[in-house]
Every structure is written in structure tokens, then in C-alpha cells.
């Protein structure tokens, strides 16, 4: 790491491993879900119908959604009925297994060789710009030459927000005037990327509710610009989802994937009071790989997603 400017946005927990960050990130969820499970097994020996009903409530309260909750609980009920697992101490382990299976069922992320372009999309207010700062920070740390493209020309001061991050990280931001054409910004960014021999261009896009039109046109145009101007770059599209969103997050992901091929998800705000259970619901419904988790406000607070670890962090150690 060349520079260690102590600006407020830089992470203070850089050296801590995945596990520590994730635990910290999932802190609230962690304790609450685990405490509720704990309470429901208290004073019981075997997993009975009442235990399962309690579990159902707990999972629903963690934003897993009705369908996913039913699937997990039914899975455990089957195992209990078939006599494979009746002891109440095994409840958490069963739950973790079920959750991990569900998460591992998503396809593996497609390899995106350098030089690459990452398009970051999502609805308003999910934390796209902060996520881009985090992705840039990480890319820079592994020695990539990074360039940011301020493609959100719609929201007031979105460009300035990205520029502030660029300054903090020492990463160049290609920008135009507010209200400009995002594809033109990407065009400029790709020219700059070729001139500077950049390895990684990260493109911010305007947030919008997935029910609005024109997103497809805009993204298609950006895609054409990249194809025409810099066909040697491989392109991936990441969808950013707010972990505090409820079941509507599934709807968002569905709509976006209908419009544009999404390569993976980044889940943000896991350090809030978020439950994060909606990740399981999305994984189940959409079979999309979760790539990263945002676990803090600093640019270093991004961790890779591991299904088993996530299940463990969500439901606690057995």
C-alpha cells in the first residue's frame, strides 16, 4: 500500500480478516437471531412442532421471506420426522446446513479477466457509490490501475460524491457535467483507460427504481460504447442490494436481471441493524452468486462472500 492517508473514510480495520469483519458486520443480526433460536430451544429436548413454529417466526423476522422460511423449516421438519435429527441441540447445525446448501446452489461467478469494466447498478439509496469506492480500494490494493467513471449524471451531487471518494483513494475519476450522457462519460473513461493502461474501470450508474424504464437503453448504450471503444476489456455487471430491504429486494433483483444480465450481487449495509436474511431469499429465487458484502462505512469495509461462513455468522456457532 503506497499511501495511507488518514482521511475519515478510509477503513480503520484493514488488517482484520474476513471473519472479524463479517462478525462485526452481522453483529446485530447475529445476536438477535441467535438469541431467538436460543430461546426457542430452551428447556426442550427434542425438536417438536412448537420449536419449528418459533423458528419460523425467527426466520421471518430476519427477512428470509415466506417461501424461503418454509423451505428451510420444512427441510428440518423432514429430517426430524425421518429420525435423522431430533435432538434440539442440533437445530442450529441443521439450519446452517440448509442455508449453506441454498447459498451454494447459486452458480459460480463467471471469470472476468483483466482488463475489465465493472458496471455497478441498483435502485436509489442502496449504497452504489460507497460500494464503488470499496471496489476501487480493493482493486488498488491488489495493484490494479483503477479508473472510476461517474456515470450517475442524474442525481444531484452524485458526481461530486464519487470525486470525493476518488480523492480520498487517489484514484482518477472521469466525469462530465450533471445531466450529461452516461454513455459519453463511459466513452471518455474508456479512452482514458486505454491511454493510461488501466486494468479496471468501475462505472457508477444512476440509481433508479427497477420499475422505471430507460435503464435498459442506457445500459445497452454503455455496453455498445465499451464494445466499440475497448473490446479488449471484459465486462461484468454487479447489482447492489440493500440488506435492510425486505422482500422487495427479490423483486428488484428479478427486474434488473430481466433487463440486463447480472453477474453477481453486492449486499450493502450489513453493519446496520440489517438482518441480511434476504440474501438467502434472493439466492433461492434467483440463483445469483453473491460476490461481496459491505460491512462498514469505510472504503476498506468490503468482504468476499463465503456461503458457509455467512450461514455460520447468521445463525451462530453450533
Amino acid at each position: 500500500m503506497a499511501d495511507d492517508k488518514q482521511t475519515s473514510g478510509e477503513s480503520t480495520t484493514k488488517s482484520k480478516g474476513f471473519w472479524a469483519k463479517l462478525k462485526r458486520g452481522l453483529g446485530m443480526t447475529h445476536t438477535e437471531v441467535i438469541e431467538r433460536i436460543q430461546a426457542s430451544v430452551q428447556g426442550r429436548d427434542v425438536i417438536d412442532e412448537e420449536t419449528l413454529e418459533d423458528l419460523e417466526e425467527t426466520l421471518l423476522a430476519a427477512d428470509l421471506g415466506v417461501a424461503t422460511t418454509m423451505e428451510l423449516v420444512d427441510g428440518i421438519r423432514d429430517q426430524v420426522r425421518s429420525g435423522q435429527a431430533r435432538d434440539v441441540v442440533r437445530l442450529r447445525e441443521l439450519l446452517q446446513d440448509q442455508a449453506a446448501i441454498l447459498l451454494l446452489d447459486a452458480p459460480r461467478p463467471r471469470p472476468v479477466p483483466a482488463p475489465r469494466v465493472t458496471l455497478v447498478i441498483g435502485v436509489n439509496g442502496v449504497g452504489k457509490t460507497t460500494t464503488i469506492a470499496k471496489l476501487a480500494h480493493r482493486a488498488r490494493d491488489v495493484g490494479e490501475r483503477v479508473l472510476l467513471a461517474a456515470g450517475d449524471t442524474f442525481r444531484a451531487a452524485a458526481i461530486e460524491q464519487l470525486v470525493v471518494w476518488g480523492e480520498r483513494l487517489g484514484v482518477e475519476v472521469i466525469r462530465s457535467k450533471a445531466g450529461g450522457d452516461p454513455a459519453a462519460v463511459v466513452f471518455d473513461a474508456m479512452q482514458a483507460a486505454k491511454a493510461r493502461r488501466a486494468d479496471h474501470v468501475i462505472v457508477d450508474t444512476a440509481g433508479r427504481l427497477h420499475t422505471k424504464s430507460h435503464l435498459m437503453d442506457e445500459l445497452a448504450k454503455i455496453g455498445r460504447v465499451i464494445e466499440r471503444e475497448a473490446s479488449e476489456f471484459s465486462v461484468q455487471t454487479l447489482l447492489v442490494v440493500d440488506a435492510t430491504n425486505g422482500q422487495n429486494a427479490i423483486q428488484q433483483a428479478k427486474e434488473f436481471t430481466r433487463i440486463v444480465p447480472v453477474d453477481g450481487l453486492v449486499l450493502t449495509k450489513l453493519d446496520g441493524t440489517a438482518k441480511g436474511g434476504v440474501v438467502l431469499a434472493i439466492a433461492r429465487e434467483l440463483r445469483l452468486p453473491v460476490l461481496h458484502l459491505g460491512v462498514g462505512e469505510g472504503s476498506g469495509d468490503l468482504v468476499d462472500f463465503h456461503a458457509r461462513d455467512f450461514a455460520r455468522a447468521l445463525f451462530g456457532e453450533p
Binding site: 421471518l60 423476522a61 430476519a62 427477512d63 435502485v123 439509496g125 440493500d242 435492510t244 430491504n245 425486505g246 422482500q247 422487495n248 429486494a249 428488484q252 446496520g272 441493524t273 440489517a274 438482518k275 434476504v278
Partner: peptide, 12 residues
């Protein structure tokens, strides 16, 4: 408050 907030809306 964001209308899309999940179960956590109540807490905040």
C-alpha cells in the same frame, strides 16, 4: 423511511 425497508423498519 424507505418504503422498501424489511422487518427492520420497526426497529429504526
Amino acid at each position: 423511511c424507505d418504503a422498501m425497508t424489511g422487518q427492520d423498519a420497526v426497529r429504526s
